[in-house]
Each structure stands twice: as structure tokens, then as C-alpha cells.
Amino acid sequence: MKILLSQSLMAYLSEPWPWYVSGGLIAIIMVLLLFSGKNFGVSATMRAGCSALGAGKINDFFHFDWKKAQGWNLLFIVGALIGGWIASTLLNDPEPLALGSRTAEHIKSLGLSLPKESKEIASGFLPAEFSKPEFVFSFKGILLMVLGGFFVGFGTRYAGGCTSGHAISGLSDLQPASLIAVIGFFIGGIAMTYFLLPLFYKQILFPLINELQNSFPK
């Protein structure tokens, strides 16, 4: 009986959680952090990371006591990492992620694989290409990851926060600045999703590959 119960509990936990449970948990995390005298905002760890790597010597923006101010937040990201590991091992859901048909079409048109096609790792949170060195270290992969990562790091500090700091903490406190930032997140996200990525893939990259292939004698 006990085993049965714990098995069904594990099965339940392994399924994707409904949005209201997930949203509720995020709110609880934020409130717990407030009561510990902290603020929920993950991107501040990036500044702390730069500081920890010695950037404080070069620039005073990174010259602060990162251990005291952000030590707990670095633990938070270690927790996020361990959580990811637990979720992918103990609570792994073998079902591929269900995806809307329009999004599926869109992703296919970009030449990336759908969750179903990437069984080798977790249940496919990222297109399988992101785990293949030949993609990651290709021009396309490098551009997507390095430029994308750079934008995230640069934009988040420029805006003074990311999804957790602005969309959740900031909007919860009805901060007008956070609303502007969230509007910005969507301007950037929509521009990239609808125009820039398709443009890049279809107009620049594919013709370039074709041209290269044609220029070599077969």
C-alpha cells in the first residue's frame, strides 16, 4: 500500500505541473526570499559572477562584496542546477513535450528538431541540435548561443533585471519600470521569433549553404 502510494505520488510529480501550481510555487519562493531579507532576481548572479572572476579590478561596477551581497543567490543557482539534475533523473517524464501545431511548423521551418525527435536527452527541452557538437560548434550554433547568451547578459543588466526580477518581483510591486522592461522583453522576443530568426535562417543561412555546396565540384 505504502509503495503503491509513493509510486503514484512519484508518477504525479513526474508529469508536467499545471501552470497554477508552478506559478504558485514561484510566488512562494519570492515571498520566502522577501522574508529572508532578500530579493528574487536571478540575473544579479551574473554581476556577482563577473565580480567573483575578478572584474572588480577592471571596473568599479563589479567592485562590491559579492559574497556578502549575492552569496545566497549563487547558492540559489546551484540549487537550480541540482533541481534540474533531480528533475531529469528521479522525476523524468518519458512523454515528449506536447507542442502546438503552429509552433511545431515554425520550428521545423527553422530546420530544428521537435521534442519527439530528441529522445536521447531528457524529454527534449531544447532541440536535439543543442546537444550535438557539430551543431553547437557550427557557425549557426555559435551565433545562436554566443550572441543569444551575450544579449541575455547585456540586456538583463542594462534593464536591471530579468524575468524573475522584473516580470515577477517588479510587477508584484506594481513598479512602472518593470512594466516597461517586460514590454521590452516582448518587443525583443517577438522581433526575434517572428522576423530575425526566420530571416536569418531562410534568407541568409540557407542560401549561403546552398552557394557553398554548389561551389564545390560534386
Binding site: 543569444g148 547568451g149 544579449f151 541575455v152 514590454i183 525583443g188 517577438i190
Partner: peptide
Amino acid sequence: YLFGGTIFGLGWAMTGACPGPMYT
């Protein structure tokens, strides 16, 4: 907030990850 947010949004759509989920 508008410029910073927009740059972040570009990156978010490219990598599909904001700073927390990256580590996860």
C-alpha cells in the same frame, strides 16, 4: 528599461533561456 528589456528579449528568444533556467 525599454532598450535593456528589448535586448534581453532578443536573447531570450534565441537561447530560450533566462538566467535561472540556464543553470537548470
